[in-house]
């Protein structure tokens, strides 16, 4: 298998792990980990696709991945803050649909 195939395979496995974790785990922290793993799978794919096929690598995917990482970090920070707030207000860090119909 060539190196590109290896990267794509790694990305696919990571993405699968992420999807599995997102669906199966109940704790929000684990769900966030799962989403970050999915994100990393996509970043690997983007970098691999821009790899040194011939000559210099293409700078655009690298720039995209850098921006993507910045966005992933800020989105994760925001999600963590939201999770902490949810824990402070309700005492749990999971999503139960118990009181979906509360008065808004």
């Amino acid at each position: 298998m060539d190196s590109l195939g290896l990267y794509v395979l790694a990305a696919a496995v990571l993405f699968g792990v992420g999807v599995y974790g997102l669906i199966v785990s109940e704790h929000l922290m684990r769900k966030l980990f799962a989403i970050n793993i999915m994100g990393n799978a996509i970043f690997i794919l983007l970098v691999a696709a821009s790899g040194p096929v011939e000559g210099a690598p293409d700078p655009v995917p690298q720039a995209l991945v850098l921006t993507g990482i910045v966005i992933a970090v800020s989105a994760t920070a925001f999600a963590l803050a939201l999770m902490v707030r949810l824990y402070q207000e309700t005492g749990q860090a999971t999503l139960s649909s118990r009181d979906e119909g509360d008065d808004g």
């Binding site: 989105a75 925001f78 207000e89 009181d99 509360d102 808004g104």
Partner: peptide, 16 residues
Amino acid sequence: KPAALRAGMRYLLLAL
């Protein structure tokens, strides 16, 4: 509000 936090969290996970 708890209901809004929960709804926002669910929205956030799906949106990400």
